[in-house]
Every structure is written in C-alpha cells, then in structure tokens.
C-alpha cells in the first residue's frame, strides 16, 4: 500500500496534451518516488476558474465545485482532495468555505446537485499539492530521495497569486512567502535572494483579453529574475507558468528584449533531483529549454 493516498483533482490544463500536461507528467514522477497514490476523482469537472464569475455568477460556480466534492466523498471516502492547479485549488476552496459558512447556500447547492442525483456532505478537505509536500512530508523527508542535487543552478522562486492569496500556505506571509526558496534549497539548488517580483500578478486570464497590460506584468517578472542572476524561474501555478514562459517571445518581438528565461514547475525540479529522466520531468514540454536541468538529468 502506498504511503499516502489522495483524491486527485488535476484540472483542465493538466489533461493529456493540454497546456500544463508537463506539470502532470512531473507530478506523477514525483509522487512515484514519494510513494504517493493519486486517484483521480471520477468524472471531475472544471472549477470555473476565477474568470468564470462574469457569466457563472455565484451558485453555479459553487455547485460545479460541489459536484467534484460529492464525487470524491462518494468514490474516495476519507481521502483529502488534492489539486495541483492554483486556480482549481482556489476555486474549490473558496466554494467550500462559502458553503460551510452559509446554510442557505449549502441547501441551494444540494438542491442543484440533486438534479444529477448527488449530495455534498461537507466532509472533504481541499488541499494543494504544495501543502501535501510541506505538511504531510516536510522538507527533511523531501530531501531524503535526492540523488542528483541541483547544485550551482540559481532559481527565482515565483510564487505568484493564487497559491498565495487569499488563502496561502499555512505559516507563510502573503508578501514574502519562503516555501519555494526552501524547496529549492532542499533540492540542493540556489534560491535567488530578494526576488522582488515573487508575488507579482502575471495578469492571469487577462493575458488573453488585455495582452499589453498583462505583458507589462510578465516583463517585470522576467526582468527581475535576470537582474538577480537567476537562470530559471520556478512556480507552483500552471497559468503563471504558461503566461510567463509563452509570452516572452511576444515581448521580445514588440519591445526588443532578448528574454529566454526557462519557467519550471517545482515538481519538475523535484523529479530531476530525484534522479528522473528528462521525459519523467516533462522537460520536453518546455518552450524555452531548461538546459541546466537537462544537463543534470544526463549526469
């Protein structure tokens, strides 16, 4: 039996060949090493993300999240729901807190769920993978499987918004969370000190609708990583990863910069440090190649 088991909520972007499919690849490799069993919530649906508010309103958003909760409670009783996507975690947790706080909302949500023969009992806990790593394992445990320390590589820990606010990771500050830096250190890497864009917003969904405003944010995030001597950015959020990696070429085209800063997931760093191959770590899924990490996998 696996050391730990969770009801897994991968989210839309982590599906096969979706924009964060390399996140999922590396999470699976990392969990294999840590002996974690992730069982997908059967037939899970989208969380509505934060941009769903305009058409989705309140109750429809809470109801679709509660559908996932009800499915997890039914099929994977006793297991915490674990999300890897920042927006899934935030959306699900937000719905759970609202429902727990309001008996009216709970009644209405269950009225909606009844239309599909489901019922939410309010038993399940919603957590982010980062919480699992820090709280259920801890840095010392996470260090044990390291066979290829990320020596000499400098990482800018870009935490971003939605794993940090409004809930955040217990014991961390909103303005200067340290967990990514600690994780990099645990893996033998070199975290950049005083990375001043650590919690800056990348623009989120507005990368689509307001590209110029969002690309200004992204430029600050990348530029500051260069200014602090980072070779790579590491993040826990799939939208941060996609926005900050993908739009560098656009910014270069429009503003004459020469950005080429790889943007990785924490789980990719862990997979490499745990001795995984380039493929195990999803490094073949980068638009901007993470050469220093590729070299470590070949050692």
């Amino acid at each position: 039996m696996a050391k730990k088991e969770y009801a897994f909520y991968p989210g839309c972007s982590s599906q096969l060949k979706a924009s964060a499919s390399n996140y999922l690849t590396s999470v699976n490799s990392m969990c294999k090493t840590l002996d974690v069993k992730l069982t997908e919530i059967p037939d899970w649906n989208c969380c509505g993300a934060s941009i769903g508010y305009a058409e989705g309103g309140e109750l429809p958003r809470h109801a679709i999240n509660a559908r996932n909760f009800a499915l997890a409670e039914t099929h994977l009783p006793g297991q915490d729901i674990v999300a890897t996507c920042a927006a899934c975690w935030l959306g699900a947790r937000e719905s759970k807190e609202r429902l727990d706080a309001s008996s009216t909302l709970m009644r209405e949500t269950n009225e909606a769920l009844a239309a599909a023969g489901l019922h939410y009992k309010a038993e399940v806990k919603i957590r982010h993978m980062v919480e699992v790593l820090i709280e259920d394992f801890g840095y010392d445990e996470l260090k044990k499987p390291v066979v290829k320390p990320l020596e000499g590589v400098k990482f800018a820990g870009y935490v971003g918004c939605q794993t940090n606010r409004p809930f955040g990771i217990d014991g961390e500050s909103f303005e200067n969370p340290k967990y990514l830096d600690k994780l990099v250190e645990t893996l033998g890497g070199d975290p950049v000190e005083n990375y001043d864009q650590k919690v800056t917003c990348c623009g989120g969904a507005l990368a689509f609708s307001e590209p110029e405003k969002s690309q200004k944010q992204i430029r600050d995030i990348v530029e500051s990583a260069y200014d602090h001597g980072a070779e790579m950015i590491v993040t826990p959020c799939p939208l941060c990863q996609a926005n900050v990696e993908v739009y560098q070429s656009e910014i270069n085209k429009k503003q004459g910069t020469k950005f080429s800063m790889p943007v990785l997931y924490y789980s990719q760093l862990m997979t490499v440090a745990y001795g995984g191959s380039m493929k195990d770590a999803g490094l073949d899924g980068q638009l901007i190649r993470a050469t220093p990490l590729e070299k470590i996998t070949g050692k």
């Binding site: 941009i51 918004c161 939605q162 606010r165 917003c201 989120g204 969904a205």
Partner: peptide, 8 residues
C-alpha cells in the same frame, strides 16, 4: 486579474 492583493 483575480490576484487577491486587495483582499489580503
């Protein structure tokens, strides 16, 4: 942008 800075 749903960054939640104002909330915290």
């Amino acid at each position: 942008t749903s960054c939640y800075s104002c909330i915290v």
